[in-house]
């Protein structure tokens, strides 16, 4: 078997394998270096970065539900300048792709982020988190309105030559139409899903279990819904899809690839088993050998 059989192309990036670690669940990379060699990963996505530092939400920030995790971290991050100065140097030393996850409260903020990251050494791609409210448009989430998403992506597209990935919110009625408008806006790829809006109440204290009342649900509990959304997006668009939502092991990853994902991301799994991504890469390799599949490419969307 050739050793490039796991290779996958997303925009301008050639990944050595389709396994990526997701935003907000992999710190700034360094937290994992004691557990495995990060260079083996297809790519790493940074924690979400905004123009200005964000202090995040009050605790408690996490709560475990059946097979899932509700988080309300509130996008705590040190801001763009501090990221470039103090976090990027570490990523630059890695022999894997860095995708910087960005988010803003206005169109202008997204454009500014893209511009200021343009040409910065060590960055292979941008992942736009559009699950944030547009404060200029009464707080409607960018990713829930196809027209708003289209205009936003078109503007950011002009501001960057990097591979542009748009991360979709699953909190929408029609994922296919959002995916389509993002494609038309000029994105190189979409990634989905972000977390599902969720909550939990403590019946003894009668208080919400996370400080922000509403949080985002991730983990195995969301996998079947995320998988369905990936398949719906796959039927609607031609640009590559990066699938995620509850992927814990190689079998889950292969399911997403069969549903139409070109690559996958793992989030919650990293927190529980820091080696989850590496074990998934090994598992995918094994699956290909056992099933005598030459290239992972041939698996994409190959179900039914």
């Amino acid at each position: 078997m050739r050793n490039n059989n796991l290779r996958i192309k997303i925009g301008k990036m050639v990944l050595k394998n389709p396994v990526i670690v997701s935003s907000g669940t992999f710190g700034f990379g360094e937290e994992f270096e004691d557990f495995f060699d990060l260079n083996q990963l297809g790519a790493v996505v940074s924690k979400g970065i905004s123009l200005k530092p964000m202090v995040g939400n009050p605790p408690p920030r996490i709560f475990e539900t059946e097979g899932g995790l509700i988080n309300s971290i509130g996008l705590q991050n040190p801001g763009l300048q501090e990221f470039i100065r103090n976090k990027l140097p570490y990523y630059r030393r890695l022999k894997t792709h860095l995708i910087v996850n960005i988010f803003g409260n206005t169109q202008t903020e997204y454009i500014e982020l893209a511009k200021r990251l343009e040409g910065v050494r060590g960055i292979s791609g941008l992942e736009m988190n559009i699950s944030c409210p547009n404060i200029k448009k009464g707080g409607i989430v960018f990713g829930s309105d196809p027209r708003m998403a289209f205009h936003l992506i078109r503007k950011v597209r002009k501001a960057t030559t990097s591979t542009l990935i748009v991360k979709l919110s699953p909190n929408v009625t029609d994922i296919a139409s959002i995916a389509k408008s993002v494609e038309e806006g000029g994105a190189d790829a979409v990634s989905l899903v972000n977390t599902f809006k969720a909550m939990a109440i403590n019946i003894h204290s009668k208080k919400p279990e996370v400080g922000n009342i509403i949080g985002g649900l991730s983990g195995p509990a969301i996998k079947p819904i995320a998988l369905r959304m990936v398949w719906e997006a796959h039927q609607a668009i031609k640009i590559p899809i990066i699938g995620m939502g509850g992927i814990m092991k190689a079998e889950d990853a292969i399911e997403f690839i069969l549903a139409g994902a070109s690559a996958i991301q793992m989030g919650t799994a990293n927190l529980i088993n820091p080696r989850a991504a590496i074990e998934t890469i090994q598992g995918i390799k094994k699956y290909l050998v056992q099933n005598k599949i030459d290239r992972i490419q041939t698996l994409i969307g190959a179900f039914g």
């Binding site: 937290e31 995040g56 605790p59 920030r61 996490i62 988080n71 990293n270 927190l271 529980i272």
Partner: peptide
Amino acid sequence: GCGFGACWGCV
């Protein structure tokens, strides 16, 4: 969430 600094859930 993790115990090793990756998720910022324990602040």
